[in-house]
Amino acid sequence: MGMSTATATRWVERWEHQQQRYAVDREERFEVITDLVEHVTHGRPTPLVLDLGSGPGCLAARIADRLPAAEVLAIDADPLLLELGSAHYGAALRYVEAVIGEPGWLDALALDRPVDAAVSTTALHYLGTETLRRVYRELADRLRPGGILINGDHISPDSTRVCELAVDIGRRHAERNATSSREDWDSWWTSAAADPELAPLLAGRAAEGRPRCEGNDLTLSGHVALLREAGFEHVGAVWQVGPSHVLAAVR
Results as ranks from 00 to 15, higher is better:
G2K: 15
S4D: 11
T7H: 05
T7A: 08
R14A: 12
Q18K: 13
Q20H: 12
R21A: 13
A23M: 14
V24D: 00
D25K: 09
D25A: 11
R26T: 01
E28D: 10
E28R: 14
E28S: 12
R29T: 13
F30N: 05
D35E: 10
D35P: 02
E38Y: 00
H39T: 15
T41W: 01
H42M: 10
G43C: 11
G43W: 01
R44H: 11
R44E: 09
R44Y: 05
P45S: 07
L50T: 08
D51Y: 00
G55N: 07
A60N: 03
A60C: 10
A60W: 03
R66A: 07
A69G: 08
E71T: 15
L73D: 01
L73S: 01
A74E: 07
A74N: 06
I75H: 00
I75N: 00
D76L: 07
D76G: 04
D76T: 00
D78H: 07
L82M: 11
A87C: 03
Y89N: 02
G90A: 08
G90Y: 02
A92R: 15
A92D: 13
Y95K: 07
E97H: 06
A98V: 02
P103A: 07
G104N: 08
W105L: 07
W105C: 10
L106F: 09
L106S: 12
A108I: 02
A108E: 10
L109Q: 01
L111Q: 01
L111D: 04
D112S: 11
V115N: 03
V115I: 12
D116E: 04
T122V: 14
A123D: 03
L124T: 10
Y126C: 12
L127K: 03
L132D: 04
E138F: 00
E138G: 11
E138N: 10
L139G: 00
L139Q: 04
A140Y: 06
A140S: 13
D141G: 11
D141V: 13
L143K: 07
L143D: 00
L143E: 01
R144H: 08
I148Q: 11
N151I: 09
N151E: 02
G152E: 06
H154Y: 15
H154K: 12
I155W: 00
S156E: 13
P157A: 06
S159F: 02
T160Q: 15
E164Q: 14
E164H: 13
L165F: 04
L165M: 14
G170T: 07
R171M: 13
R172E: 14
H173S: 09
E175D: 10
E175Y: 01
N177C: 12
A178N: 03
S180E: 15
S181I: 06
S191I: 08
A192Y: 04
D195C: 09
P196A: 01
P196M: 06
A199D: 10
R205F: 05
G209P: 09
R210T: 13
P211Y: 05
P211I: 01
G215R: 01
T219R: 15
L220K: 03
G222T: 10
L226T: 06
R228A: 07
E229D: 12
A230F: 05
G231F: 04
F232D: 02
E233Q: 14
H234L: 13
H234W: 09
V241I: 15
P243A: 12
S244H: 04
R251F: 00
